[in-house]
């Protein structure tokens, strides 16, 4: 049985914004009944301000697919289209208090439906299917999608790619192709990212940057393994964090602390010290 959060259960049992919008301004239709999940997103958009006035969904799928759809509509209502496009699949998962890692593809489906709906509104053409290179035949997943989702979510293993896109989860024939794509992505990315000289920061900038790195770089990775941390305090160069979820009982706690410290030293300041509070 899946370990769903209370939030997921709540959004599944009492979904918000379920249904159709009559005469919608935009529709995003992704997934298929064959693959086992599908989402149709309807938007009502204010033409003057480009603001999303209403969002509704119809979803065929499991509890986390329905909950993700519901969460998505909740998140984007009231946002402008440009603001809505900054919503990531991780935002959808976070809104639900996290999803089991095998179910992350449900949040990706939400993000895809949003993109499709906005493209539909803006009259952008959908990429022609024939031009896309399909990597996973079982679930009809393109190379483009694998690259995009892998980069956005820092995916480094085939298993993670399967959890987020379903690619490789069927017959498994495409697993070597997915490995090659991952190798390609991270081999190129790793080089230009390194030599980033750290700027001298004001205290305020430093605190903001530490918060950002923890939220965007560190927590998603820990959550991927069922763990989590909370930033408790920042005192000069001392960063005090508390272990949450699976991290609480994890015997690798010290290794995790060191990892967080390394990341913060790399991205914020070389003299950061991380401690458990």
């Amino acid at each position: 049985m899946w370990d769903y959060t209370e939030k997921v259960k709540e959004f599944f049992l009492n979904p918000k914004n379920a249904g159709e919008i009559e005469n919608p301004d935009a529709v995003g239709d992704v997934g298929s009944i064959i693959c086992g999940d599908a989402l149709k997103l309807f938007l009502k958009i204010d033409k003057e301000t480009n603001r999303i006035l209403d969002a509704k969904f119809q979803t065929f799928g499991c509890a986390s697919a329905i909950a993700s759809s519901s969460a998505l509509t909740d998140i984007i209502k009231g946002k402008t289209l440009d603001e809505a496009l900054t919503v990531t699949n991780q935002d959808i998962a976070d809104y639900l208090g996290g999803l089991p890692k095998e179910k992350m593809h449900c949040s990706v489906m939400g993000r895809e439906a949003l993109e499709a709906a906005i493209a539909n509104y803006r009259g952008e053409e959908k990429p022609v299917e024939a031009e896309e290179k399909i990597v996973c035949e079982c679930f009809n997943v393109s190379e483009e999608k694998i690259r995009k989702v892998a980069i956005e979510n820092h995916l480094t293993t085939v298993e993670e790619v399967t959890n987020y896109t379903k690619a490789g989860g069927g017959c498994g024939t495409c697993i070597p192709d997915i490995e090659a794509i991952l190798k390609d992505i991270w081999a190129v990315k790793a080089v230009p990212e390194k030599p980033k000289a750290l700027k001298k920061l004001t205290n305020l900038q430093k605190i903001a940057l530490i918060q950002e790195v923890i939220e965007k770089e560190i927590r998603p990775r820990l959550q991927g393994d069922g763990g989590d941390i909370e930033l408790i305090d920042i005192d000069g160069n001392r960063v005090i964090v508390g272990f949450r979820a699976m991290c609480v009982a994890c015997p690798m706690g010290n290794v995790t602390l060191k990892g967080i410290e390394e990341k913060l030293r790399e991205l914020v300041s070389a003299d950061i010290i991380v401690e458990e509070g």
Partner: peptide, 23 residues
């Protein structure tokens, strides 16, 4: 409709069954 969704709603009533769905 999808089997896992059915099972979880049955679960709310304490009814235990299983499904052949992918999820």
């Amino acid at each position: 409709v999808e089997g896992e969704a059915i099972l979880l709603r049955l679960n709310e009533y304490g009814i235990c069954a299983s499904s052949g769905s992918a999820c």
